[in-house]
Simulated assay, not measured.
Amino acid sequence: MLHIGSADRNAMPTAHSWCSCGRDLKAFGHQQIARLTDDHTRHRAQCPLLTRGKEAA
């Protein structure tokens, strides 16, 4: 799951990426969130817990 949020318009945005495999990462600011979003997308394609069912299909 990936959650991106900001308290208000002038606040620093934050992001939290976690998975049932134990992955739990946080990012602060636009650049770190962009990197975390890319990493989160790669993780979803490679995580054994998420890809196990796709291999059988």
Rank of each mutant, 00 (worst) to 15 (best):
D8K: 04
F28R: 14
A27M: 11
K54N: 10
C19F: 04
A34F: 02
H16V: 05
S6Q: 15
F28A: 09
C19T: 05
T37W: 07
L49F: 04
A56S: 14
A27F: 03
L49A: 14
Q46K: 10
W18Q: 09
Q31F: 01
H40I: 04
R9H: 11
D39Y: 06
A45T: 01
C47K: 11
C19H: 09
A34P: 01
T51D: 02
A11T: 15
R44T: 01
S6I: 09
G5R: 09
S17T: 03
H43P: 04
A11N: 10
W18N: 12
R23P: 01
C21E: 06
M1Y: 08
R23A: 12
D39W: 01
Q31H: 06
R9V: 09
H43D: 00
G5M: 04
R35L: 04
G22T: 07
R35M: 02
P13D: 13
A56H: 13
H16L: 08
S6R: 15
C47A: 14
H30R: 11
T51G: 03
M12Y: 01
H40Q: 06
H43A: 02
I33C: 10
A7K: 15
R44F: 00
R44P: 00
G53W: 05
H16N: 12
P13W: 12
A57R: 14
L36N: 12
N10I: 11
P48N: 08
F28H: 13
T14A: 08
L50E: 03
A7T: 15
D24Y: 04
C19V: 06
A11D: 15
K26C: 02
H30M: 05
M12G: 06
H43L: 02
G53V: 02
H30G: 07
P48R: 06
D8H: 14
D39L: 08
R23H: 11
D38Q: 02
T14Q: 14
P48H: 09
R9I: 12
S20V: 08
I4L: 12
L25E: 11
Q46V: 02
R35V: 01
C21T: 09
T14L: 06
K26E: 13
T37L: 11
I33H: 03
C21F: 04
E55S: 13
R35Q: 09
L25V: 12
A7I: 12
W18V: 01
S17W: 11
P13I: 13
P13S: 15
I4T: 15
T51L: 03
A56F: 07
P13M: 14
H3P: 01
T51R: 07
K26T: 12
T41A: 07
C47Q: 04
L36R: 09
R52N: 04
K54C: 03
